[in-house]
Amino acid sequence: MKRIICIGNRLVPEDSAGPAVYDLLKQQELPLDIEAIDGGVAGLNLLRFVEGAECVVFVDKVNGFGKPNEVVILESAEASTAAENTHSHSAGLPYLLRIIPEVCEGKIPHISLVGIEGHPNEALIDEAAAIALKIAGDGKSSHITGF
């Protein structure tokens, strides 16, 4: 199974990009081998969704990786550099990405992050959802073109 895991807190407008992409994906008929997951703010608890997946595409709000109002694609290693040195209640996605090589049971899937810079608007959400689907469909992010 290929998984698109949308991260964020729908109660907080500036962190609602991931949930908005999830809501959009759920309105669509996804390919049978792609599953969209509302990851909320579960952080480390999302590890179980990574294990056993063929590939994982996270979707989350990001800061400082691109221009405002831009969708960026990050490889797991790059996104994990944002992790704090230790775990906290707010450790979130970077900690998860950094710890995965140490704790993942089974083969580590290809992992990428579709990041949304700036305040999420309808166009950005549409673009992020399309990119996430494209990456998940291809099973990797190295040949993304046309966005």
Partner: peptide, 16 residues
């Protein structure tokens, strides 16, 4: 203590 209930964006650079 847990005042986490908040924003969880991925930020470039480490907030240590």
């Amino acid at each position: 203590c847990c005042l986490v209930c908040t924003v969880h964006t991925v930020n470039r650079g480490k907030e240590i």
